[in-house]
């Protein structure tokens, strides 16, 4: 299979580099009071929204980076900055050694972008027609196109609906077709903004497996945003958490759990309906003789809890498991919300 020449990349093997990037938007505010009509018309209040504040981020070639954060944190803004759609208010954005805004045409030839709720497919045409359109507009040589088509057909299983009208595809099929379409020109880096939004479990797994294969076999760099933290943890070695325009965490998932609390769930079966009173835990309810707690394993060792419980009652059974990463992140978001009031 053909491999594009990647020798012309920026030094240090850095694929994406954001330095002190600010992005500010302005929103017009409007009072609903009748007496403010003239003010609304002639001197409206403008609110400054700082979508990104001094963001520094570097992604190495071949990395898969999860880019996560609550709604409005600045994820999509970052993806748009890297897709030649938006310019930063301040700071520099470089990707594959290029400036996405001033070198848009050669730059977008080397990247692939998927916005989860948008499609590049021609709606009233068979999927095949969109692929042929892409071949022409991206000026992909026929032999490379044929190779890539065979590759994506095989891995994404789009052959079964290749001649179906795009508007007749299911959500999962449409996303597979969109991702396949994005890959035809062999992009060196993929920006995936919520690529699995609305998909069922199986479709999600297929997409994630494919991204993984692509990264492993072809060394494609991937930056993806999602609200599904479990899927991000499955896929990415590194997570960047963004909150109110600032990078709040940049590292791996293990460190994330350690830093923000290694939250675990504990279930104890006892001989009585009265739950044992344990220090340093939060009771989350009882169901007959089964009592459930959550605790931070980094602060409170489980052996201590079991000693406390056994001192109060007879323990018949114990179950413990780590919180899903979704819960960990939800706690982090909640903490951030509390901090910011």
């Amino acid at each position: 299979m053909h491999r594009p020449d990647r020798s012309v990349t920026s030094p240090g093997d850095i694929a994406v580099e954001l330095r002190e990037v600010d992005k500010t938007f302005y929103q017009r505010q409007r009072s609903e009071r009748f007496r403010d009509v003239l003010t609304n018309l002639f001197r409206p209040t403008i609110r400054e929204i700082r979508a990104l504040r001094g963001v520094n981020l570097a992604i190495r070639r071949g990395e898969i980076v999860a880019y996560a954060g609550p709604n409005g944190a600045g994820k999509s803004t970052t993806v748009k900055l890297l897709s030649s759609v938006l310019a930063p208010t301040a700071g520099t954005v470089r990707c594959l050694g290029m400036d996405p805004m001033t070198e848009r045409v050669p730059y977008v030839r080397r990247i692939g972008v998927v916005f989860g709720q948008r499609t590049e497919l021609w709606w009233d045409q068979p999927v095949a027609a969109s692929f042929e359109w892409k071949r022409v507009v991206w000026e992909i040589p026929r032999s490379r196109y044929d190779e890539m088509l065979a590759f994506v057909k095989d891995l994404l299983g789009i052959g079964e609906f290749f001649h179906t009208l795009a508007r007749q595809l299911s959500l999962g099929q449409k996303m597979r077709a969109d991702i396949a379409l994005m890959l035809l020109h062999e992009p060196e880096i993929l920006f995936l903004d919520e690529p699995t939004i609305g998909l069922d479990v199986l479709a999600k797994r297929n997409i994630l497996d494919f991204i993984n294969t692509l990264n492993r076999e072809r060394g494609v760099t991937v930056m993806l945003t999602s609200h599904d933290m479990d899927e991000l943890e499955q896929l990415a070695g590194r997570i960047v958490l963004i909150d109110r325009g600032r990078i709040a965490y940049d590292g791996d998932f293990v460190e994330l759990r350690r830093r923000f609390g290694d939250r675990r769930h504990l279930t104890i079966d006892t001989g009585t309906a009265d739950p044992p009173t344990l220090a340093g835990v939060r009771s989350t309810g009882s169901d007959g003789n089964r009592h459930r707690y959550t605790f931070d394993a980094a602060r409170t060792p489980i052996t201590t809890l079991l000693q406390q419980a056994s001192a109060q009652t007879v323990i018949h059974d114990v179950e413990t498991h780590r919180s899903r990463i979704d819960d960990v992140i939800a706690d982090i978001y909640q903490d951030w919300n509390t901090e910011h009031g």
């Binding site: 897709s83 045409v105 977008v108 030839r109 948008r118 507009v137 991206w138």
Partner: peptide
């Protein structure tokens, strides 16, 4: 317009 901006053509 975003769709046009991610295409490698003027």
């Amino acid at each position: 317009l975003d769709h046009l901006l991610v295409q490698p053509q003027p």
